[in-house]
Design a protein around this nucleic acid. Structure first.
Length: 818
RNA sequence: GGAAGAUUAGCUCAGUCGGUUCAGAGCACCUGCCUUACAAGCAGGGGGUCGACGGUUCGAAUCCGCCAUCUUCCACCA
């Protein structure tokens, strides 16, 4: 018997396989005659580090891909990272700031050089971390959304939609992030209820000559610092209280600018004072009112959220400082009627957590109407299946109410918008500067390269992510639907399953469906498995600021990657949030140890070719064979329904209860003279076969320990590289054999389920009197101590053997030994 | 404010067609055991008015209504 420690040591085993699996070509896949099974990774931020959400997501991905690989499919999991413009750029800016460099002092080229340096230095750490988790990606296919050819795909896509007339430039009220200094999409704004104040201000009615009358109205606002941008005060036309106001003008407090009273039914009579200050430049609704009433627009807030010269007063002050100061000024001027505490929803930037400033600006948009219809139809028709399907409702709602997609971002890190402005303001959109110049010269042959100017903005990161399932295989295709897909794309596309979080169902999943339809006429995947959010034990979201998120690498070091994977999967039924608790990882670790020790037992068996197989052993073999088959069927069924944690639990119980507690306890040889008796050949071979099958069954979930033991169990030959080197999975599930079952039953070998609970056992009448005593008697001469705690399988209760007279034991009870 | 989903043991969750595979699993807990694979273990045990109320039915965890609580998404009333 080999010397194996009684405790499984994951780090030893994992280091070994980790480095093997990192070898080039190990999980590499090329198109061949087999059926492909493909997953593209939801690309993590290139500068991100592994958190529990990644662990959940990538464990699920890896389970699926390893399962497919063992099923004999040509499994390909494409890894990669996302350039994440806002997140990465703000990290680079912060880092430069530490070095005393401000972004404004750099040219675009200089800044990008820093950014790439940073990316080379810190980027891709997360992919190495994923390998620690056992992710069996095809590392040779690693892609980055800003790889040159992938960027070209993005540019081509822009040109494609522009020429199709779906991309336009327009002035819109956008969500401005004054910290990130960029517009963000509606989806990137998080509304949070925020404690603020409701200021009631006096607006005096104008006397018509720049002076004020003694009449005034009270306007309630949460943003007094924007009064200088007011274009009107609006009342509801049906508000009888203010009938006298109609046609009058009022003066903006402090600056005494005259603005008209307008009537608009948007104003609710019952809310606030019934008077609404209309500030078209700084509120989306006010902007809409402004358009209706043709009001002038005064923009008083600059990109950094400071008041600009249009504000007349408090120029240069930050908007929140200005709010405090203006409160004081108003109060001193006797224009502040009262201040109430007020909780109102305020939009925050998802990336920088800055308060979003509604701001008018010129942006690029992609028309969504037609695309959304396609994406909706794909899910409604079931061509793309959402798991769990409760998300179909939210998906439909979103798709039916989608607005045009603002695709420009005022950043440098990303794909620059391929639009060039001619001196007269004409826009040409082409894939590169040369083509743009060529197009420009068709308009004005005198133009030179110096005369045309490229748009400064870059594209939204999702504008590259939505091409991901296509561009990782064939970056030449997006934007060129007339091209023939290359061999990779033709073979791997559409991919099979996508595992991702529901938070990016619209950002990413829906848009990938749109792009897939646009360029290939096919959905990029058939199943979308939506995971839950990883929360801590008491239900809080994992977050850095709360400090409740464990570092997955620490966990892996402590418990092993297999244990971490199990810990995540145990509690992750699809779509439910995950309540992470370290004790689940412990459970995983314990299971690893159980497997390890069962292996120690099995490899310690001495085999005798001459020994006859005891009847108990032969029925145990038959019983377990049936049990194994039926469990394999169950597990397959669970997998087919994406019930991964159920699949895991089925194998867990099969391995632990049925195999270890029942089967091994029955067949393991007795001791004589302090030495174990040898095991007969038939039982031994069967046992090895079962163990082999069990390892393969649990391998997708626990790749490290199963790889180690399976390689050790029998000579496996040289490990092949390049393809999956596992045998094509356990043979198709054998049918459950009723004969074996009844034989096992007649021998008193009971499946665990049958005797776990007393009632059930009684009802089924499985137990014969004396059965347990029989086992106890046999065990008695094995060891004195064993008597007190007879090693019976779980669930085999003492309570069933109330009558303990030794004499009642039936003679023929051949369970544990010959 | 609108929508969707959830509520089953201390915790996390299964429960498919309304009925002898319906009170289930894992963990946790309690008791006894360092035993020759494993104390990261073994054996045994306790534990639930299936959120409340009403209805349909011969029969309801399951179907319907209503209420309560929770979660998420959408919207933003200044």
């Amino acid at each position: 018997m080999k010397e194996l420690s009684a405790k499984y040591n994951p780090s030893e085993v994992e280091d070994k396989w980790y480095s093997k699996w990192m070898e080039k070509k190990f999980f590499h896949s090329e198109p061949d005659e087999r059926e492909p099974y493909t997953i593209v990774i939801p690309p993590p931020n290139v500068t991100g580090i592994l958190h529990m959400g990644h662990v959940l997501n990538n464990t699920l991905n890896d389970v699926l891909i390893r399962k497919a690989r063992m099923d004999g499919k040509n499994a390909c999991w494409v890894p990669g990272t996302d350039h994440a413009s806002i997140a990465t750029e703000s990290k680079v800016v912060a880092r430069l700031k530490e070095q005393g460099i401000s972004k404004e002092d750099l040219t675009r080229e200089e800044f990008l050089r820093y950014a790439w340096e940073w990316k080379e230095e810190h980027g891709g750490i997360i992919l190495k971390q994923l390998r620690k988790l056992g992710a069996s990606c095809d590392w040779d296919r690693t892609r980055f959304t800003m790889d040159p050819d992938l960027s070209e795909a993005v540019i081509s896509t822009f040109v494609h939609f522009y020429k199709k007339g779906l991309i336009y430039r327009g002035v819109r009220m956008v969500n401005w992030d004054p910290v990130g200094l960029t517009a963000v999409s509606d989806e990137e704004v998080i509304h949070k209820d925020t404690q603020s104040k409701f200021y009631h201000l006096r607006y005096y009615v104008s006397d018509g000559n720049g002076g004020r009358t003694d009449k005034y109205i009270v306007v309630a606002t949460t943003r007094p610092e924007t009064i200088m941008a007011d274009a009107a005060v609006s009342i509801n036309p049906d508000d009888e209280r203010y009938g006298w106001l109609k046609g009058k003008k009022v003066l903006i407090p402090l600056i005494n600018k005259e603005i008209p009273i307008i009537e608009d039914s948007y104003v609710e009579i019952g809310f606030g004072t019934g008077c609404l200050k209309v500030t078209p430049a700084h509120d989306a609704n006010d902007y809409a009112i402004g358009l209706r009433h043709n009001l002038p627009i005064t923009d008083i807030i600059d990109d950094h959220g400071r008041l600009n010269e249009n504000a007349v007063i408090l120029i240069g002050e930050d908007r929140f400082v200005a709010r405090k100061k203006i409160e004081k000024m108003l109060s001193e001027a006797g224009l502040l009627e009262k201040v109430e505490d007020y909780v109102s929803p305020v939009g925050y930037s998802e990336r920088t957590d800055a308060v979003i400033e509604p701001k008018l600006s010129t942006q690029w948009f992609l028309k969504m109407e037609g695309l959304a219809k396609v994406a909706l139809d794909s899910v409604e028709s079931g061509r793309t299946r959402l798991i769990p399907d409760k998300y179909r409702n939210t998906y439909r709602h979103w798709m039916e109410n989608v607005r045009d997609w603002c695709i420009s971002r005022q950043l440098w890190w990303g794909q620059r918008i391929p639009a060039w402005y001619l001196p007269d303001g004409t826009i040409v959109v082409e894939e590169n500067a040369e083509k743009a110049l060529e197009a420009a010269r068709k308009i004005d042959p005198a133009l030179t390269a110096a005369d045309i100017r490229q748009d400064e903005d870059v594209l939204d990161t999702w504008f590259s992510s939505w091409l991901w399932p296509i561009s990782v295989f064939d970056p030449g295709l997006p934007g060129h639907p007339e091209h023939k897909p290359n061999a990779d794309l033709a073979y791997y596309y559409p991919t099979n399953d996508l595992v991702t979080g529901p938070d990016i169902l619209f950002f990413w999943v829906a848009r990938m469906i749109m792009a897939g339809d646009e360029f290939l006429g096919k959905e990029p995947f058939s199943n979308v498995y939506l995971t839950g959010i990883v929360r801590d034990k008491i239900g809080r979201k994992m977050s850095k600021t709360l400090g409740n998120s464990p570092d997955p690498l620490d966990l892996i070091a402590k418990y092993g990657a297999d244990a971490v994977r199990i810990g995540m999967l145990l509690c992750s039924s699809a779509g439910n949030d995950i309540f992470y608790d370290e004790s689940q990882v412990e459970q995983g670790r314990n299971f690893c140890n159980k497997i390890w020790n069962s292996y120690r037992l099995i490899t310690g068996f001495e085999v005798s070719d001459s020994a006859a197989q005891p009847a108990a052993a032969s029925s145990a073999v038959e019983w377990f064979r049936a049990k194994l088959s039926s469990t394999i069927e169950t597990v397959e069924d669970h997998y087919s329904k994406f019930r991964i944690s159920d699949a895991l639990m089925s194998v867990y119980r099969l391995f632990w209860d049925d195999f270890c507690s029942w089967y091994l306890e029955i067949v393991k040889p007795a001791y004589a003279d302090g030495k174990p008796l040898p095991l007969d050949r038939a039982t031994y071979d069967a046992t090895i076969g079962f163990f082999d099958a069990l390892l393969r069954l649990i391998h997708p979930v626990m790749p490290f320990i199963t790889e180690e033991l399976w390689q050790d169990l029998a000579p496996r030959g040289r490990i092949r590289s390049g393809r999956h080197r596992r045998p094509p999975r356990h043979a198709s599930a054998e049918k459950y054999s009723p004969e074996a079952a009844s034989l096992a039953e007649s021998q008193g070998i009971l499946p665990r389920k049958g005797c776990r609970r007393r009632q059930e056992t009684r009802r089924r009448g499985f137990h014969r009197r004396g059965e347990c005593l029989g086992r106890r008697r046999v065990l008695h001469d094995r060891h004195e101590r064993t008597l007190r705690s007879a090693r019976r399988p779980r669930g085999h209760r003492r309570g069933d053997c109330k009558d303990r007279e030794g004499s009642r034991v039936p003679e023929a009870f051949p369970r544990l030994r010959p």
